[in-house]
């Protein structure tokens, strides 16, 4: 059920790498319990958009507001400058992020990966963090890998551990950056199942994905990005069966073939 105010509001967001405009005026509202799937060709700006949301990548123009608060910048007298890192971090830790390449900490065991954020950033007691981490690992089906090193896990297991690590921060929004793109095909299902479970619990999320069937199934809204812009946006039923834009049709024809 959507509330009145969006928890995340993007307005006119732009970003360039040199002369190349990666994001060219993105407007997007994300409401509580939304599952926003972002699709599009590689290079269309999808991943950059996600990284701008929690300011892992700074955006250049426009605004990103999380619960009304500007992300990454402060504005005084109409002028904008970078916010203090400590301020940005307070916002950032409310986003859980899952990366294409998992990015688990290789020198730590699975459980140490999961408690790292809560103990180091949230200041939770270790014993308490471990109890919760064990619950999260059980949820993603990794209890028996509790003390394993990431390098001994399959890609699917690593990604599920990474999801548990992100959830341990009790995020308000989860950001998934192509969570299954680095996986062998037979391992995709277990990661999607873990994400599906979060959807069922009402987690708000943005997912950059190439899994069209999955997007169609779980998304409340689908965003099709092309050349740094949102070319088309709508409920999955509309986007996948009756897209308005010819660009969307061409893209879907290619990936759904």
């Amino acid at each position: 059920m959507a509330q009145d105010a969006p928890i995340l509001r993007l307005a006119g967001v732009t970003k360039s790498y040199g002369d190349h405009r990666v994001l060219d005026g993105i407007d997007l509202d994300v409401f509580q319990h939304d599952v926003v799937a972002i699709i599009g060709r590689s290079g269309s700006g999808k991943s950059t958009l996600l990284k701008c949301v929690n300011f892992l990548e700074p955006y250049d123009g426009g605004s990103i507001r999380f619960n009304g608060e500007l992300v990454g910048y402060v504005e005084t007298d109409g002028k904008r400058r970078l916010a203090k890192d400590s301020v940005t971090r307070v916002l950032r830790k409310q986003f859980g992020m899952v990366f294409q390449n998992f990015n688990l900490f290789p020198h730590k065991t699975v459980i140490e990966n999961v408690i790292e954020g809560p103990t180091q950033v949230l200041g939770e007691a270790k014993a308490e963090a471990i109890v919760r981490a064990e619950q999260l690992l059980a949820r993603v089906g990794l209890s028996e890998k509790r003390d394993a090193r990431p390098s001994t896990l399959s890609g699917g297991q690593q990604q599920r551990a990474a999801i548990a690590r992100a959830l341990a921060m009790r995020p308000k929004i989860m950001l998934f950056d192509e969570p299954t793109s680095a996986l062998d095909p037979e391992l995709v299902g277990e990661v999607l199942a873990a994400i599906r479970e979060l959807v069922a619990e009402g987690m708000t999320m943005m997912i950059v994905t190439h899994e069209m069937a999955f997007a169609r199934d779980v998304a409340t809204r689908v965003i099709f990005m092309d050349q740094g812009r949102i070319a088309e946006e709508g409920p999955p039923g509309t986007i996948f069966t009756n897209p308005r834009e010819s660009r969307t049709r061409e893209f879907l024809a290619r990936v759904l073939r």
Partner: peptide, 12 residues
């Protein structure tokens, strides 16, 4: 990616 992961947890 290790920096990105650490920052995404809110680390300085």
């Amino acid at each position: 990616g290790q920096f990105a992961a650490a920052y995404s947890l809110g680390m300085s």
